[in-house]
Design a protein around this nucleic acid. Sequence first.
DNA 1: TAACTATACGGAGGCTACCTCCGGTTGGCA
DNA 2: TGCCAACCGGAGGTAGCCTCCGTATAGTTA
Lengths: 200, 200
Amino acid sequence: MSAVTTPDAAERALRADAKRNRETLLVCAGQAFAEHGTAASLEDVARRAGVGIGTLYRHFPTRDALVEAAYRHGVEGLCDAAELLLTEQPPDIALELWMLDFVGYVATKRGLAATLKLSADDSHTELFAYVHERIRAAIKSLVDAASATGRIRADVDGADLIRALGGICMVSDQTGWQDQARRLISLLMDGLRYGAPTPA
Amino acid sequence: MSAVTTPDAAERALRADAKRNRETLLVCAGQAFAEHGTAASLEDVARRAGVGIGTLYRHFPTRDALVEAAYRHGVEGLCDAAELLLTEQPPDIALELWMLDFVGYVATKRGLAATLKLSADDSHTELFAYVHERIRAAIKSLVDAASATGRIRADVDGADLIRALGGICMVSDQTGWQDQARRLISLLMDGLRYGAPTPA
DNA sequence: TAACTATACGGAGGCTACCTCCGGTTGGCA
DNA sequence: TGCCAACCGGAGGTAGCCTCCGTATAGTTA
């Protein structure tokens, strides 16, 4: 009878402290997973976050839930950074910086994504669709802004850039792949700037 | 330079019971890793093998050592099967059966190989080189035998077949990929038989 | 065949991590 | 200010990790 249409009784707004703890846990889980892989100790994650182990388990009932949430959180941070960069840098610089960020992001999240894929749980397809969409949107806003200023050529497709970035990050698993990837990204940017209406 | 893959010089021959236990452990570890991923309980592996946990750790001091050995053992089993098939079947049938086996093998070992790759330990490059070489040799013997009988075309390259197999097993992570892969392999065999000197 | 010993076995034990459960605390609201 | 639903935290029982060392035995020698 509580006529409130509460479509998401489950997703009721978190209390302030709960929200704070959840955020801290996600950040610390990201660090721990980057350092020790997804087998990192959850008690260690709780310790880093300065909360009890019970709090961790209330927010993320299983390890998989935490891994997935940390991955999603990382992607969201990366994509939010795109907007921030656009407010602080010329759009073509923002695009280049963001793509360089992307390399570091892949470095820490590659194992994480692999773990998720290995679980062979189809529920993760939704996650990957979401992640792809967020990244697509981030690139699009960067490319559109850069195109609008004429600093890069106008015929650049965001989807192509995603594929190029993915390919660049696949170059190798060997030590030093990150530097190689960054050099390739600089090359890619030169290509994007070549023949731009408004050269720097 | 002594061959890297023949440790008999460095390591003294195992006692009969030790050899038996080691073999059993590898088989049981393969089963356990296939069922629960590489995070499977090592005590459970020891229980399956009917040995004490101490025995497991003596043979494989770390989890990684056991994972790697189980992987290598699986590859060796697969490649040995190639020779067995050649003695029991016409060569072209042997080739086809072996490639179908390969799909099942990839199904159980995919996660295992991914775990090894994620460890980013360059010591595993030797392992992958060895594995690739064994598989290359197995395919070559099958292809050569089948070519010699004229049941498949003579211009087939073993290395191409490896790439084709790899590609076929990459088609997807979705449920049912194994059936799809097997259909593709049948197609591939038809292609190999097309224009063979001695049609069936 | 019997005695010998290098080698291997097995599991107890100390430790850490997992996850649950529940008494205590607190943010947000009336 | 006072109330209480929501949240916190960690004790505790279970399970897995890995080491260590006393016991058993395969293979050898006399």
